[in-house]
Simulated scan of single mutants.
Amino acid sequence: MKTIRYYMAPQSPWTWLGHERLIAIAKRHGAEIDLRPADLNRVFPVSGGLPLAKRAPQRQAYRLVELERWSKFLGVPLNLHPKFFPVAGDDAARLIVAAREAAGDEAGLKLAGALLRAVWVEERDIADAGTLRAIAGECGLDFAALEGAREAAARIYDRNTQDAIDAKVFGAPWYEYRGEPFWGQDRLDFLDRALAAG
């Protein structure tokens, strides 16, 4: 079975731009997606990266140009200045982990997509417990049950983060197929070709 390892963060606009395309590519090649939400706040310091607020003004400005360019090119809606951003993504990431553990990869991916859309399209606060409860319900998930698995999900989230660091991940989204890394949604065409060749 072909497997794509998918390191992601639910508050990342680049992850949002690539999420549904990744799922479509995986389906086309009969590949499974190993969904691994990871904590970028722990990944950045060991990989030379900086949180957005600490980046130079010219880098922050160009990021907006690229986000708008890609959003238009892909036809994927994206609010460049969402109401709830920056936003802490840890609780949302742990909820994705819990959903995957409880209901499988497809449920985890569906919830991840809904949380990404919540930030970048719907002006919703994914750091708010009420919002997380509502989005889980919209995805057909039992929020109370997922919350009950919070400690186990936190351990897996920590492990995902350490695995990301060990795999030399430095940003999100990050895809890995047969040991080959692909950083960013703009590398999905290369991943597609690698899957076709595999």
Results as ranks from 00 to 15, higher is better:
residue 18 G to E: 01
residue 58 Q to T: 08
residue 148 G to A: 01
residue 74 L to A: 11
residue 183 W to L: 15
residue 182 F to A: 01
residue 16 W to Y: 14
residue 87 V to A: 13
residue 136 A to C: 06
residue 198 G to K: 00
residue 33 I to A: 09
residue 43 V to I: 15
residue 157 Y to W: 11
residue 71 S to T: 04
residue 52 L to D: 13
residue 190 F to R: 09
residue 128 D to F: 15
residue 33 I to R: 02
residue 137 G to H: 09
residue 152 A to I: 00
residue 132 L to K: 04
residue 187 R to Y: 09
residue 125 D to G: 11
residue 25 I to Q: 05
residue 10 P to W: 02
residue 22 L to H: 05
residue 156 I to V: 15
residue 143 F to C: 06
residue 44 F to R: 00
residue 76 V to Q: 10
residue 198 G to W: 01
residue 153 A to N: 04
residue 13 P to F: 02
residue 52 L to K: 02
residue 14 W to M: 05
residue 183 W to R: 01
residue 140 G to N: 05
residue 197 A to E: 15
residue 31 A to G: 03
residue 38 A to S: 13
residue 84 F to G: 12
residue 100 R to S: 14
residue 183 W to N: 08
residue 12 S to H: 07
residue 173 P to C: 09
residue 15 T to R: 00
residue 167 A to P: 00
residue 51 P to T: 06
residue 39 D to T: 02
residue 38 A to C: 11
residue 178 R to V: 03
residue 175 Y to R: 00
residue 151 E to K: 13
residue 164 A to R: 03
residue 191 L to A: 08
residue 31 A to W: 02
residue 190 F to W: 08
residue 178 R to I: 00
residue 185 Q to G: 12
residue 88 A to E: 09
residue 173 P to L: 07
residue 23 I to R: 14
residue 129 A to D: 13
residue 147 E to I: 00
residue 143 F to D: 05
residue 30 G to I: 05
residue 19 H to W: 04
residue 191 L to Q: 04
residue 174 W to Y: 13
residue 93 A to H: 03
residue 11 Q to N: 12
residue 142 D to C: 07
residue 92 A to T: 05
residue 20 E to A: 14
residue 46 V to P: 09
residue 162 Q to S: 15
residue 53 A to S: 10
residue 126 I to V: 14
residue 153 A to V: 02
residue 117 R to Y: 07
residue 178 R to C: 05
residue 48 G to D: 11
residue 93 A to I: 00
residue 166 D to N: 12
residue 65 V to Y: 07
residue 76 V to T: 15
residue 150 R to V: 07
residue 62 Y to H: 14
residue 185 Q to W: 08
residue 57 P to W: 11
residue 53 A to C: 02
residue 114 A to S: 10
residue 32 E to C: 11
residue 137 G to K: 03
residue 70 W to S: 10
residue 62 Y to F: 14
residue 3 T to Q: 14
residue 158 D to C: 04
residue 102 A to N: 05
residue 123 E to I: 01
residue 181 P to V: 06
residue 72 K to W: 05
residue 96 I to R: 00
residue 138 E to W: 01
residue 158 D to H: 05
residue 163 D to A: 14
residue 135 I to F: 06
residue 45 P to E: 09
residue 167 A to R: 07
residue 143 F to G: 07
residue 123 E to M: 01
residue 100 R to Y: 04
residue 195 L to S: 09
residue 169 V to Y: 04
residue 112 A to F: 03
residue 70 W to M: 13
residue 171 G to Y: 04
residue 65 V to T: 11
residue 106 E to A: 15
residue 16 W to M: 03
residue 101 E to L: 12
residue 32 E to P: 00
residue 149 A to C: 06
residue 195 L to V: 08
residue 134 A to M: 11
residue 195 L to A: 08
residue 3 T to S: 14
residue 93 A to K: 01
residue 132 L to F: 13
residue 92 A to V: 00
residue 39 D to N: 15
residue 84 F to C: 10
residue 111 L to Q: 05
residue 118 A to Q: 03
residue 51 P to A: 08
residue 7 Y to N: 05
residue 90 D to I: 11
residue 126 I to L: 04
residue 144 A to G: 07
